[in-house]
Amino acid sequence: MSTIYQEMFDIGEGTRQVSVGARRFHHPHLRALAEHELLSAGHSEVDGHLHVERIGAPFHVVLFCVDGGGVVTDGASRLTLGPGQMAILPALGHSGFRSAGTPWRLAWLLVNDVPAWRMLAGDHVSIRPLMHADSLYQTVRVLCAEAILGQAGFAAQALLLAVDLFRRALASHADEAIAARLQMVFEPVRHAPAQEWRVEDFARAYGVSAAHLHRLCVRHLDATPQQLIIRQRMRRARELLVAGAGNVATIAEQVGYQEVASFSRRFRQHFDVSPGALLQAMRAGQGGFPAG
């Protein structure tokens, strides 16, 4: 891979940046960074002008915003980065970041574009929620301070914590993505609740075995696939009842139940109100009931 790329720095006098790099020409440099495929780490206290932009850089840039905020660029697009958010600027793109005219505190990592960090790759900049942003920021501050003092051992310990916090943040986002994808896999049930749905069909749609789908659903949605099918049927039943689409027996049949008693029992377990009581409340103009 070519290491030739375009880079632009425009940093005003009011902006203070501290960093540590993995290569010998960095001052200070910390060899342990290279073990984690990090090119450098640092933090910035922006009070004034800051504009950094790169085209075709062979590394990912990750920003952790603690206070204030700035603008992240993705080609011609402009994205706002605020407190408690993480921005990932993938390698080889045309991206950057700049101040927005207000004080801004952030930490950052330059991460090598290698298989170990493949989760950072992509065609566009992404901005994600970041829990414990202040912990990451403070850890990077300690890392840089200890490296400047020449305390490589303490700096390496701070680096381990920073990498662990970073990986935890990425894993949290990955979990959210899996949960959202699983929810979408079961969405067709709501549109055709009377159909005879089989867990194997959803597993095939997700691209895993039925047993693995069961494990994923329990881990990420706290429910089995069969429970998720029931949940979608009950939500559709609630929508139909509220819309006045029929009596309890009619709605039961529309969502795949042949026995009204079985449907009513399941509905009550799910929403803590029977479908008949819900209809009576709707007719009486009482409106709402538990969301479930």
Rank of each mutant, 00 (worst) to 15 (best):
Y5E: 08
Q6L: 08
E7Q: 13
E7A: 10
F9D: 05
D10F: 09
D10M: 09
D10L: 08
T15F: 08
T15N: 04
V18M: 10
V18A: 11
V18F: 06
V20M: 02
G21M: 07
G21A: 00
A22G: 14
R23Y: 10
R24V: 11
R24A: 14
F25P: 04
L38P: 07
L38K: 15
S40T: 12
A41L: 13
H43L: 12
S44P: 03
S44A: 15
E45F: 11
D47Q: 14
H51W: 11
E53N: 05
A57K: 14
A57E: 10
V61E: 07
V61C: 07
G68W: 04
G70W: 01
A76M: 10
S77E: 12
R78I: 05
Q85I: 00
Q85T: 12
I88M: 02
F97P: 01
F97T: 00
S99G: 14
A100W: 03
A100N: 12
T102M: 09
W104N: 01
W108S: 11
W108N: 11
L109A: 02
L110F: 09
V114D: 01
L120T: 01
D123V: 09
D123G: 09
H124T: 12
V125Y: 01
V125F: 04
S126V: 14
I127H: 09
I127P: 01
R128C: 08
R128F: 09
P129V: 03
H132P: 03
H132M: 11
A133S: 15
A133G: 13
D134V: 15
L136V: 15
Y137C: 10
Q138D: 11
V140S: 06
R141P: 06
V142S: 15
L149I: 07
G150I: 10
G150E: 12
Q151E: 14
L160I: 07
L165E: 09
L165D: 06
A169N: 04
A169L: 04
L170D: 03
D175C: 10
D175W: 01
I178Y: 10
A179D: 00
R181D: 15
M184L: 08
V185W: 05
Q195S: 11
Q195H: 13
Q195K: 10
W197N: 08
R198S: 08
D201N: 06
A203F: 08
R204C: 10
V208Y: 01
A211D: 06
H212M: 06
L213T: 10
L213F: 02
L213A: 07
H214L: 05
R219Q: 12
D222C: 08
A223M: 13
T224R: 02
P225A: 13
I230N: 09
R233L: 02
R235N: 02
R235A: 02
R236V: 00
R238E: 00
V242W: 00
A243P: 00
A245T: 15
G246S: 00
T250L: 04
G256I: 05
E259T: 03
E259K: 01
V260L: 01
A261S: 11
F267N: 05
H270E: 15
V273C: 13
G276W: 09
A277R: 13
L279H: 03
Q280V: 13
R283I: 05
A284Q: 14
G285F: 08
G287P: 05
A291T: 11
A291C: 07
G292E: 04
